[in-house]
Design a protein around this nucleic acid. Structure first.
Length: 889
RNA sequence: GGGCAAUUAGCUCAGCUGGUUAGAGCGCCACAUUGACAUUGUGGAGGUCACAAGUUCGAAUCUUGUAUUGCCCACCA
C-alpha cells in the first residue's frame, strides 16, 4: 500500500531515470503518423545555475512536449547549453583573479585562457544538466547540443561567409557602445539606462552659450550646432567661423545648422563631440565634419586634453569646470539635473560611445530573397510576423516587435573578448579573406574579434538539428548540410519557441533574422512568451538581494517538482509577470498530496474488493450509478477542455480546471459517494484517465501512481495516448449531470441546516424532503443522502407535510426539513431564510424588470428570454415557500 | 517624450466572442478528528468589479476620458 503522504524525494529521480533509460524522450519512441512537434530549448548558460526563469520555461515546454507526445506526435525537444560569451569569460577571469592572477588575459594569452575557460565549462555543464532533469524535463538528451561545439562553429562560419558574400556583413568605422571595464563593444540592446544626478553646466563658447553635463568631452569641440529656423541665431549662417576662448586656449569654431537640434532645449545651441556621442556622430556624418577621439578605451583622457591627459573622466570633470570658472566661461550650473547614464547590461560599467572599426550586419540592404522578392533583413523580420507565418502569444507583443524593427540600426556583431566564435576573416598584406576554413598559405592573420553570442544563438533552432558528423566534411555547402540532415528535414521549422518576453529582441528577433536568411525557413511557428516571476511584493528577484530569491532546487527538495510546476503555471498568463511565494507552492503540494491520497483510497478499495487493479480491463468501464454517469460526463468535459485549452496555449486555465475537478468534484463528491457504493472497475478506469490528463502538468506523481493502477499491458504514462476530443450529445449527458447536482444541493442544504441549528456533527438527524419533480430521483439516491448527511430517518414525499419542530431550507422544487426533537433555533433559521429571501427578492425584481422591458423582450435572443422566464417561475415558487415559512416562525 | 499593460474579496489572481444571484486559492470565523488525506473535512463571513461619461434592451466585459501603478522604447546636447 502507498505511504500516507506523497514523498517526491523518494520518487522523482527514480522516475526520471526510468523515463530516460527507456528512451521515451526520443521521437523515435513516439507513435508515427500524427505529424511532428518540435521545441528548441532555450539553452541555459553552460556554467549557469537553474533559476526560476529556467524553471518556468522548462515547465511550460515540458507540458507542450508531453501533450504532443501523448497525442501521438513525433515529439522532439532538443536540449542544449550556451557558451554565453561575455558572461562566461567574466566568470572564469574572476575565478583566476581570485586564485591570485593579476591579469589573466595578459598572463595566459589567448590560447591558454580559452583552454582554461573550455575546461571550466566542461566541468560545470553537468550541474545545469542535472538541474534541468530535476524539473522533469522530457527532452532528448541524446541530441543535446552546445552553442560552441565544432559543428556549430562550422555553421556560424558558413552563415558569416554567406552574409559576407551577399554584402550583408561589412566592416567599418562606426560609433559603437564601448565598455571600458570589459574592454569590448556591446550591442545596442545590451545598453541599459540608469538615472543619475549630475550637474548641467552652461558655458560661454564664443558668442554662444552652450549646455552640457559632460564637460570632459568638450576639449575637441569645434562646431556649434543650431536649428536652421531658430530666429535668435538667424544672423549666423551655416559655415560661418569664429574664434572662441576654450578650456585649453582659443579654438577655431564653425557654425552648423541642423534640424536635429531642439530650439526649446537650453539655449538652442550645442557643441558636438562626434567621437563620443551617437547623435553627434550622425550630425557629423551628415555634414562631413571632423571627428576626434577625446577619451581612450580605458576611459582616460587623451593627450589632446592637455594638462588633464591621462586622468579618468570622473576625476577630471570637476577640475575642468574649475578651470572654466576661473576663465569666466561658466554661465551657470544646475546641480539637480537628472540624466540617463548608459551602462552595460553585462558588467554594469559605464558605457562610452567610441568610434571603432567593427563588423556589422546591414539590416537595410534589400538583397535577401524571400517569398520571391528581394528584401532587407528588416523587411523579412517584419513580413513573417505581419503575414502570420509566425504567431506571437500574446499578440500585443507584435507591436513591440514591429517598433523594435522600425528602429533597428545595423547590428554590431564583433566583440573584443576571446571566448566565442571567432570572426572567420583573415588578413595579409592589406588583403582580406573571408572563408569557412582558414586560408592555406603562411602569413595570414585571423581577425582577433569574436562574434556576439546572439549571432550563434540566432541559428539555434536549426543548427542544433544539423548532423554533427556531416559538418566534419569540409566539402559540403550549407545547402547540402541542411538537405542531408535528417533531423533538420523532419523537425524544422520548430513548432513553438517558449521564452521570456525580456528576451524578445535579443534572441527571438535574431533567430527570425538569422534563420530565415540562412535556411529560407522560419525558425518556429509560434512564439509563446512567458512573464517574469516576481516576489510576493511584486519585486524583481535579484542576485544582489539574495533574500528575495527563490531557488527552484530548494523548492523541489521541499515540495517536489510537480508542485513547483503547478505553482508557476496556474495563475500565470502569457506575457504577464506573476508572483511566487511559498504558501502558493505549498498549496499545490497539498493538491499533489490530495491526488496521492485519492489514489491510495482507490487502491484500498481494490484491495478490499480483492481486485488487482492491473488486471482491470480498460474496456470494463461501464457507469452504473448516477454518480458514475455524472463522473463520466464530467471527465469527458474536462478532457475536452484540457485538449482545447492546451491547443490554444491556455495553460493556466487548464491547470485550474484539472485542480478543481480532482479536488472539488472527484474527491469531494465522487469518492465520498463511492464509500457507500463502489463500482471498482469504473473507478479505476476513471482514475487512470485523470492521471493521463494530469500527466503533462505533474509528470512525476502521475507516473508513479500510474504504475500502481495501470492495466498490465499499458505502457508507461509518458508514452500513453491522450484521449481525443469527444463531442457530447445534447440532452442526456448534461441532464444526468444536473440530476447529480440536485443530489449535491440537497446534501449541502442538509449540512447547512445542521450547522445553523448547531446539531452535533456525529448526531443522526431526521429529515423530511418534499418534492414533486424529483422524488424518484432522490429516492434512488436515498442511501447517499443518508450517509453524506448523517440522516437517521428519511422521508421523501410528493405532498406537502404538516411539520412541527423543524428547520427548513428551500431549493427549486424541493423542501428540505430537518426535524429536531428539542428546540429549533428559530432565530438562526429566520436569519438564514431572511437572508435568502432578500437575495431572491432582489433577483426576482431584476428579472421581472427585464421581462417587462419591451426593448429587452423584442431584442434579446429568444433562448435567453425563455431561460429567464423559467428561472423567474422557479424562483418565485421558492420565494413563496420561504415567505410562508417565515410567517410561521 | 512615445508605446504597452494592469486596476475585481484582507492578499494573489480567474472571469475567452457583452446576458453568471461576479468565482478560485490563501487568509479569516465557527464546527469536526481513529478508516484516502490535518499537506484534512463541513458550513460561513467578505466585493456598489479604480473613477466618470458614453454605446446597448443589457457592461466587470465594448468606446472615450481621468487617476494610480508597472513595464518597454527613445535619449534633450
Amino acid at each position: 500500500m502507498l505511504d500516507k503522504a506523497y514523498d517526491p524525494k523518494a520518487v522523482e529521480d527514480r522516475i526520471y531515470k526510468m523515463w530516460e533509460e527507456s528512451g521515451a524522450f526520443k521521437p523515435e519512441s513516439c507513435q508515427k503518423g500524427n505529424g511532428t512537434f518540435t521545441i528548441s530549448m532555450p539553452p541555459p548558460n553552460a556554467t549557469g545555475q537553474l533559476h526560476l526563469g529556467h524553471a518556468v520555461m522548462l515547465a511550460l515546454e515540458d507540458i507542450f512536449i508531453r501533450f504532443a507526445r501523448m497525442q501521438g506526435k513525433e515529439a522532439l525537444w532538443v536540449p542544449g547549453t550556451d557558451h554565453a560569451a561575455i558572461a562566461t569569460e567574466n566568470v572564469v577571469i574572476k575565478l583566476l583573479k581570485d586564485g591570485g592572477m593579476k591579469d589573466p588575459r595578459k598572463e595566459l594569452g589567448r590560447e591558454k585562457l580559452i583552454a582554461k575557460i573550455a575546461e571550466f565549462v566542461e566541468g560545470s555543464k553537468n550541474t545545469i544538466r542535472s538541474q534541468v532533469r530535476k524539473m522533469g524535463s522530457s527532452c532528448d538528451w541524446s541530441r543535446e547540443r552546445y552553442t560552441f561545439e565544432p559543428s556549430l562553429n562550422r555553421l556560424v562560419n558558413e552563415v558569416f561567409k554567406k552574409m559576407y558574400d551577399d554584402g550583408l556583413i561589412y566592416r567599418g568605422h562606426r560609433i559603437v557602445n564601448w565598455d571600458p571595464k570589459l574592454q569590448t563593444t556591446v550591442s545596442d540592446d545590451e545598453v541599459e539606462y540608469k538615472e543619475e544626478k549630475s550637474p548641467f553646466y552652461t558655458f560661454k563658447y564664443g558668442p554662444f552659450e552652450i549646455g552640457t553635463s559632460r564637460p570632459e568631452t568638450k576639449f575637441g569641440d569645434k562646431y556649434v550646432v543650431m536649428h536652421p529656423d531658430d530666429k535668435r541665431y538667424s544672423k549666423y549662417k551655416h559655415g560661418d567661423t569664429f574664434e572662441a576662448e576654450w578650456i585649453n586656449g582659443p579654438v577655431h569654431a564653425t557654425v552648423i545648422k541642423d534640424m536635429s537640434v531642439d530650439p526649446a532645449f537650453g539655449t538652442g545651441v550645442m557643441t558636438i563631440t562626434p567621437w563620443h556621442d551617437h547623435i553627434d556622430f550622425e550630425i557629423a556624418e551628415r555634414h562631413g565634419l571632423e571627428k576626434e577621439q577625446v577619451i581612450d578605451f580605458d576611459g582616460k583622457l587623451l593627450p589632446m586634453a592637455g594638462e588633464f591627459a591621462g586622468m579618468k573622466i570622473d576625476d577630471a570633470r570637476p577640475l575642468i569646470v574649475e578651470k572654466l570658472k576661473a576663465k569666466g566661461l561658466v554661465v551657470k550650473s544646475d546641480e539637480n539635473y537628472v540624466h540617463n547614464k548608459a551602462v552595460s547590461q553585462r558588467g554594469g560599467g559605464t558605457l562610452e560611445p567610441q568610434i571603432k572599426l567593427q563588423w556589422f550586419i546591414d539590416v537595410n540592404k534589400e538583397k535577401v530573397s524571400w517569398k520571391g522578392q528581394s528584401m532587407s533583413l528588416k523587411q523579412i523580420m517584419h513580413d513573417v510576423v505581419h503575414h502570420g507565418d509566425i504567431t506571437i502569444i500574446p499578440d500585443r507583443f507584435d507591436k513591440t516587435y514591429f517598433h523594435w524593427i522600425d528602429n533597428l540600426r545595423d547590428w554590431c556583431i564583433s566583440r573584443q573578448i576571446w571566448w566565442g566564435h571567432r570572426v572567420p576573416v583573415w588578413y595579409k598584406d592589406g588583403e582580406t579573406y573571408c572563408a569557412v576554413n582558414p586560408p592555406e598559405g603562411a602569413g595570414w592573420q585571423q581577425d582577433s574579434d569574436t562574434l556576439d553570442t546572439w549571432f550563434s544563438s540566432g541559428l539555434w533552432t536549426w543548427s542544433s538539428l544539423i548532423d554533427a558528423k556531416l559538418t566534419e566534411n569540409p566539402n559540403l555547402s550549407l545547402q547540402e548540410l541542411l538537405a542531408q540532415s535528417p533531423d533538420f528535414q523532419k523537425f524544422h521549422p520548430t513548432s513553438v519557441m517558449e521564452t521570456g518576453y525580456d528576451i524578445l529582441f535579443f534572441w527571438v528577433a535574431r533567430m527570425i533574422l538569422m534563420t530565415t536568411y540562412a535556411t529560407g525557413q522560419i525558425p518556429f511557428k509560434t512564439v509563446y512568451l512567458h512573464g517574469l516571476i516576481r516576489t510576493r511584493e511584486g519585486k524583481k528577484m535579484s542576485k544582489s538581494h539574495p533574500e528575495t530569491m527563490i531557488d527552484p532546487l530548494d523548492i523541489i527538495t521541499k515540495y517536489g517538482a510537480d508542485a513547483l510546476r503547478l505553482s508557476m503555471i496556474v495563475g500565470q498568463s502569457p506575457g504577464a509577470d506573476s508572483r511566487l511565494y511559498e504558501e502558493k507552492i505549498a498549496g499545490y503540494r497539498n493538491f499533489i498530496n490530495k491526488l496521492w491520497n485519492a489514489s491510495r483510497f482507490v487502491l484500498m478499495q481494490c484491495e478490499a474488493a480483492g481486485r488487482d487493479p492491473h488486471s482491470i480491463s480498460p474496456s470494463d468501464n461501464t457507469p452504473r450509478s448516477l454518480a458514475d454517469q455524472a463522473l463520466q460526463i464530467e471527465l469527458i468535459t474536462l478532457s475536452n477542455n484540457v485538449i482545447s485549452g492546451l491547443e490554444t496555449y491556455r495553460l493556466s486555465d487548464v491547470g485550474e480546471k484539472l485542480y478543481s475537478f480532482v479536488w472539488d468534484f472527484f474527491c469531494d463528491w465522487y469518492l465520498e459517494l463511492s464509500k457507500g457504493e463502489v463500482n471498482i472497475s469504473f473507478l479505476v478506469n476513471s482514475l487512470r484517465e485523470i492521471l493521463v490528463l494530469l500527466h503533462p502538468y505533474c509528470p512525476f506523481i502521475t507516473e508513479e501512481l500510474w504504475k500502481e493502477i495501470k492495466h498490465e499491458n499499458a505502457s508507461m504514462l509518458i508514452a500513453f495516448p491522450f484521449p481525443s476530443f469527444v463531442v457530447l450529445a445534447e440532452g442526456k449527458g448534461p441532464n444526468l449531470r444536473s440530476q447529480f447536482q440536485i443530489l449535491i444541493d440537497v446534501i449541502t442544504a442538509l449540512r447547512k441546516l445542521r450547522t445553523d441549528q448547531n446539531v452535533e456533527p456525529s448526531k443522526e438527524i431526521s429529515v423530511v424532503i418534499v418534492t414533486k419533480k424529483y422524488s424518484a430521483l432522490l429516492e434512488s439516491q436515498e442511501s447517499h443522502i443518508r450517509r453524506m448527511g448523517k440522516v437517521g430517518s428519511l422521508m421523501i414525499s410528493t405532498d406537502s407535510q404538516k411539520l412541527e419542530n423543524v428547520a427548513s431550507a428551500f431549493l427549486s422544487d424541493i423542501e428540505v426539513h430537518l426535524s429536531l426533537e428539542g428546540l429549533v433555533d428559530k432565530e438562526k433559521e429566520k436569519a438564514s431564510l431572511t437572508k435568502e429571501r432578500d437575495q431572491l427578492t432582489k433577483f426576482v425584481a431584476g428579472i421581472e424588470g427585464k421581462l417587462s422591458n419591451e426593448q429587452f423582450v423584442s431584442k434579446a435572443p429568444a433562448k435567453l428570454i425563455d431561460e429567464q422566464k423559467a428561472k423567474l417561475a422557479e424562483t418565485v415558487e421558492k420565494l413563496k415557500k420561504i415567505e410562508e415559512r417565515l410567517k410561521g416562525l
